[in-house]
Design a protein around this nucleic acid. Structure first.
Length: 303
RNA sequence: GGGGAGAUACCAAAGCGGCCAACUGGGGCAGACUGUAAAUCUGCUGGCGAAUGCCUUCGUAGGUUCGAAUCCUGCUCUCCCCA
């Protein structure tokens, strides 16, 4: 096990991109982006993809390789990354994965259970059931189809219930029967590095980054994607708020304000997500030198 | 100078004698989350406490009352109208 996957994570706006470029240049490795929105080629300003310059210096994977109309998921990401890694490791025993999508990172590090794909017809069926009967209708159905999961899910979260129902119906057996929750063994070492800042610092950076995105033409980008507004990829901070502005539901100023707030909230959720992961070693972004040392020590420990 | 309106927790804003530590919204904080995850959902938000609870609040100083954010008086400040 002399191959190492360095995972650089942290909330939006901490400064992952710049550091990942520096680290990749130093260790001469590629970067795997673990970001569920940078996947899409039609989106770039609002998703803060690395600059052209950065993309030209370091080889990035999983950035802008899909269309917003394509389906993608954490498990596909796991599969694709695991397919790619052997090739990257054959050139260098270090690979850097950088991103903020916790579930995607989790899928690569620990694996995600095999669950059948959902039949779109079934999905539509439950969506309309939700529309007609509300969450109560979904609960009733789940209680019958999967009492075990019913006892455990957040019964106020319709997406959770819906997903379970979809699986129950397409698979013909309870959703809970698929959840093994076993960590997959990987044939490479994983070193998780988290970037952290004080809350004030982070929020200030997020706020001004949004201003910069707007200056860079976020509104125009959103306008071009307006027609895709119902696609999941566009249910993203920075776009949905502008869509509401285009619909004249809110003012432009309000939209920008909400983008900032929602970005802050997103960052908070990311921090909560990683809070319980004891394997993460946290660093202030200014301490790049410490990060480099930490990585070097890990490499030595492996060899 | 004269007349009127108002001062409520981080902000906005209800409450107008007891059910008020105080509706609601915003902001914030904390958390959940195995497939749409930049999504979806939950709790908390005067202080102390695990909790029954206790302590300090509704500009400020007094007063009325068994009891006041709510009524009365003085003071301070803000806003509006007339001059």
């Amino acid at each position: 096990m002399k191959n190492i996957l360095i995972v650089l994570l942290g909330p939006t706006g901490v400064g992952k991109t710049d550091i990942s470029i520096d680290l990749a240049a130093l260790f001469n490795c590629d970067i795997i982006s673990a970001d569920s929105r940078q996947l899409f080629r039609e989106m770039s300003i609002g998703t803060a993809v690395p600059s052209d310059n950065q993309l030209n210096t370091i080889k990035h994977h999983f950035i802008r390789f899909l269309s917003v109309e394509d389906y993608y998921s954490a498990s596909l990401f796991e599969r694709d990354v695991l397919d790619l890694l052997p090739r990257l490791f054959s050139r260098n025993n270090i690979v850097l994965m950088s991103g903020g999508s916790g579930l995607y990172i989790d899928a690569v590090c620990n694996g995600i259970d095999d669950i059948p794909d959902v039949d779109p017809v079934v999905r539509d069926k439950y969506i309309s059931r939700y529309k007609e009967e509300g969450i109560e209708g979904l609960r009733v159905a789940l209680k019958i189809l999967d009492p075990e999961h019913y006892a455990r899910v957040d019964l106020k979260n319709y997406k959770r219930i819906m997903r379970a129902l979809e699986i129950c119906e397409t698979a013909g057996r309870p959703y809970s029967s698929f959840l093994k929750k076993q960590k997959r063994k990987r044939d490479f070492r994983i070193v998780k590095i988290g970037l952290e800042r004080t809350r004030d610092d982070l929020y200030n950076r997020i706020n001004s980054r949004v201003d910069n995105m707007v200056k860079a033409g976020l509104e125009e980008e959103a306008r071009l994607l307006f027609k895709f507004r119902n696609l999941n990829a566009l249910n993203s901070v920075g776009y949905r708020e502008f869509f509401d502005f285009f619909d004249e539901k809110i003012s432009r100023e309000k939209a920008i304000e909400l983008i900032k707030r929602n970005s802050r909230r997103y960052a908070k959720r990311q921090i909560t997500w990683w809070g319980k992961d004891k394997d993460i070693r946290w660093f202030q972004p200014e301490r790049v030198q410490d990060i480099i040392e930490y990585i070097s020590d890990s490499v030595i420990a492996v060899n």
